[in-house]
Design a protein around this nucleic acid. Sequence first.
RNA 1: GCGAGAGUGGCGGAACUGGUAGACGCGCUGGAUUUAGGAUCCAGUGGGAUAUCCUGUAGGGGUUCGAGUCCCCUCUCUCGCACCA
Length: 858
Amino acid sequence: MKYNPHELEVKWQDYWEKNRLFKVVEDLSKEKYYLLEMFPYPSGKIHIGHVRNYTIGDVVARFKRMRGKNVLHPMGWDAFGMPAENAAIENNTHPARWTYDNIEAMKLQLKRMGFSYDWDREFATCDPEYYQWEQLVFLEMYEKGLAYKKKTFVNWCDKCQTVLANEQVEDGCCWRHPDLEVTVREMDSWFLKITAYAEEILEYCDKLPGWPDRVLTMQKNWIGKSYGAIIRFPMVGSDEEIDVFTTRQDTVFGATFMCLAPEHPLVKQIIRGLPQEKEVLEFVEQTLRMDSVTRTADFTAKEGAFTGRYCLNPVTGEEIPIFVANFVLFDYGTGAIMAVPTHDQRDFEFAKKYGLRLRVVIRPPGGDLDEETMSEAYVDEGILVNSGPFNGQRNLEALDSIAEYLGSIGKGHKTVNFRIRDWGISRQRYWGAPIPIIYCDRCGTVPVPKEDLPVVLPLDLQMRPNGASPLPLEPSFFKTTCPRCMGEARRETDTMDTFVESSWYFDRYACPDYSEGPLDPVRVDYWMPVDQYIGGIEHAILHLLYSRFYARVLRDLGHHRVSEPFTNLLTQGMVCKETEECPEHGFLYPDQVKDGKCILCGTGIITGNIVKMSKSKKNVVDPQGLIERYGADTVRMFCLFASPPDKDLEWSDQGVEGSYRFLNRVWRLVNTHIEKIRGVRPFDGKAALSGRSRSLFRKTHETIKKVTEDIENRFHFNTAISAVMELINELNQFLNSGEEIDETDWSVAREAVEAAVILLFPVVPHITEELWHMLGHDDSLLKVPWPSHNESALQTETRLIVLQVNGKVRSRIQVPAAYGPKEIEREALVDERIRRFVGEKPIKKVIVVQNKLVNVVV
RNA sequence: GCGAGAGUGGCGGAACUGGUAGACGCGCUGGAUUUAGGAUCCAGUGGGAUAUCCUGUAGGGGUUCGAGUCCCCUCUCUCGCACCA
């Protein structure tokens, strides 16, 4: 019988679905295991990255199930977002229609891959039944001051026509549009107070041993905690004081000027009416107009403008000029710095450019510095000089006492500063969850009463061709009455960042039908936290940081009890492929290349680097086509076999072919011998074996051990698969050698076949179900417990000992397993080849490693 | 610039705590089968000389009886951060 993947895969998918084998309910008698893969945006088609991600997850889910765990393995849709709006405009349809159609299509594809999801828990984040709870939580956060509105400088992406959070800006560009730099706008925006949890989120980074270090490092850097001081500089000619943040209060005696960020609100205030006013304003405007890449680039010179005002250095009492400077970040610290040109390279360059004073306050140990001749700032450790009472101290040791001194004179205090900013969630978009707020001319900002939730996103709107949200132009949506005074009022027309939805969807999977509140405490308590989370590294900061924040918010609002949502995190590598480029037609899809030539013009193509598959480079393979050609099992197997999950996977058509051949080999092996195998029971390990069957028996149990360990401890599916390949190879030799096979041999063979089928099941569930059935079993492999190896099967009568002379392998001998070190050494020294290599040289030392090797040192 | 990770055949990758380097797969070579091709099966496959060795895990040095694995230096690549005061 020929291996027909298509037919048998669909058959088993129907079987699983009809028998509801992936359905899971809470069961206190079993240990729970919550396995989650990052849910997809419903773009309409699964891509190969999804296939890899979800295959890895499916193997673990099926494996854990067979290991007796109660496995929650859900799937749903991250369904709000821009692409739906764009597609709707392009195709003259509606984002909702487009989204739900896409969900249908992708769901079919996921089912065709044979993934073991409990589809009863499915939801889309654009369902009002989902986002109504998000709105409720927003109101609860508003009550606690964790959600607030402020007018501030925000990142604006022109293509998205919306504001972005800091986390969504990469290299100064929108994370969705790497070619378009974001611009700065001053706008009213809603923020979630992630800074209130910065300390806890940071601290817990060290309590997540199941996370990759690099993700934690990235999060730590993003949070950016630093220890320093706030120092107050009194203004000359007014009662105002300017606060600066510094980590280098040891250099305060050397602060000879001050710089403000161009956005700093004090700037406009202090220059009012001065001759410098116009020039400074021009400089500010010019700087703010610059895109952030240019503004913060290395090669951008440090520039500024003198405000005409002075303040007092609080420790020297000296008047120092106040500048506005392009390199000072409004976002960090207080948006103002004390400049110490002698000990900070940026300040040094600035001082040189504008001819400002320098004063050395740290000298190198055993050396000296001269303001006149120094050509760069001295940033290393040293001894304090020109620093009043602190002269002679080591600078780092004086950090605390200088901070205390500042406190004693009322001019500062020690502090901790974070780089992370609050999460801006306002989006000027249509296809998102409405922010449940009403603005009333009399009552101001009024939250929508909880009983009026949800604020439903109206679906009967016409998309606007320019891409802007229709909500602010839609009276039926924004016109409302104020809940307080019942007067005319206007709804908030911004929607929430879609990362809000993805910050708690995993909680909702535990109780998708709960209608009393966002989360059912009982069921969430059973399932959360997620035991294993699997997804792309690209969310190292964005989604994973927001989710850690949101978990704490939900905890403190009393919705659940966990702090960390994901106990273990696996970040899978990208799927890569070489690009193919025609000099005439640019990048080509794989099917536009034939025999190394462009099918459009026949020109020879240029093969490019192996890079992440992307539509823009056209180096993509379509999973649908692969499924049609080879079946889902082959695709699943190749995704796992080509490399370990955390590394990048290089796509290879020949590699796929190899996986397909292997499945065919397994298929043929069972089919060829099915009559004989069905006639015996699997070997029970009781009778004594010898020779070939003993060896096959051992191999079977070695394989069980290896595959179990590889999946359980390391997620190394590639080596697990190769171990089963070895078993299949040995089995093939065993059955096809031409030697006689007796009844016992057949039963050993049957045990080996069944082991291979079971061990392969999580990887290639369809073909193995079929083979299992052919072997005479009625039940699904899903109900078969994972095998454990037989320790006595692993034992050998003899051991291979490697013999070395001076560390080089010279011979190998078999010795009885019972031999101790003395006997092994004796055998080694009489070995003919060893004697030849030792020759007449005196033996200095013999090292015996039990069961492994002997090294003779001469 | 700072931080993290990596560098192993023609290719993807094995080698888990220092102990046979190259498992498994792809590709390639030879053979069998076949009208032919494909598929399948058997044998071989790091390099160099050759019937017994030499050499080999980016390069150099070190520790050790023994190093792909540990330590130091250099190079290359990938990723992250990058005027953070």
